[in-house]
Simulated assay, not measured.
Amino acid sequence: MLRKIIGMTAALLAMSTVPAVAEPEAGLLPAPTGPHKVGVTTLHLVDHQRTDPWPDAVGKPRELVVSVHYPARSVRGYPVAPQMTPQAAAVFGQLDAVYGHPELPKSGVDWAATKTHSHVGAPALPGRRPVLLYSTGGGDPRTINTALAEDLASRGFVVVSMDHPGETSEVEFPDGRVRTIALPEDPRVKPAIFRDMIAVRLTDTKFVLDQLEVLAAGGNPDAAGRELPRDLARSLDLRRIGMYGHSAGGTTASQAMYDDPRIDAAVNLEGHLDYAVEPGKPGELLPVARDGVDRPLFLVGTDGYLDDRYRTSWAAMLSHGPRTRHHQISHATHWVFTDFAPMTEAFVNARLMPEQDRVKLVGEIRAERSVPVVRDLVGAFFQRTLRR
Rank of each mutant, 00 (worst) to 15 (best):
E170S: 15
T136R: 10
I198G: 03
V109D: 05
T114D: 04
G139I: 04
S169V: 01
T136Q: 14
H119K: 03
Y134G: 08
S135G: 09
H164M: 07
G139D: 06
H117F: 08
D175M: 04
L152G: 10
Y134K: 04
I181T: 10
K190W: 13
I193H: 03
G176L: 03
E167N: 12
L148S: 06
R201K: 06
L202M: 02
H119F: 00
I144A: 12
S169K: 00
V109A: 09
R179K: 15
R177A: 13
R177V: 11
G176M: 02
I193A: 05
R179C: 12
A199S: 15
L152Y: 10
T114C: 04
S169F: 05
R188Y: 09
K115Y: 06
G138K: 01
V171L: 08
A113H: 07
P130N: 10
M162P: 02
E150P: 04
R201G: 08
V158K: 11
T116V: 04
V120A: 05
E185W: 10
E167Y: 09
K190M: 14
R142C: 07
R177T: 13
H117G: 06
D151T: 06
P165N: 08
R201H: 03
R128S: 15
A112H: 02
V189R: 11
P191Q: 08
T116F: 07
H119I: 05
A113Y: 10
A147I: 01
A122G: 00
P174T: 01
R195F: 09
S118L: 00
H164S: 11
D151Q: 01
S154A: 14
E172T: 12
V189F: 02
R155H: 15
I144R: 07
L202R: 12
F173L: 14
G138P: 00
V158L: 06
A153Q: 03
R142D: 12
V159L: 13
E170M: 15
V178A: 12
K190I: 14
V160H: 02
S135F: 08
V200C: 14
I181S: 01
F173S: 05
L132M: 02
P126H: 12
W111P: 02
V171A: 08
G121F: 09
R195L: 13
N145H: 14
P126M: 09
E167I: 12
R201I: 06
L125G: 06
D163Q: 00
G121H: 07
V171R: 01
L133R: 12
P184E: 14
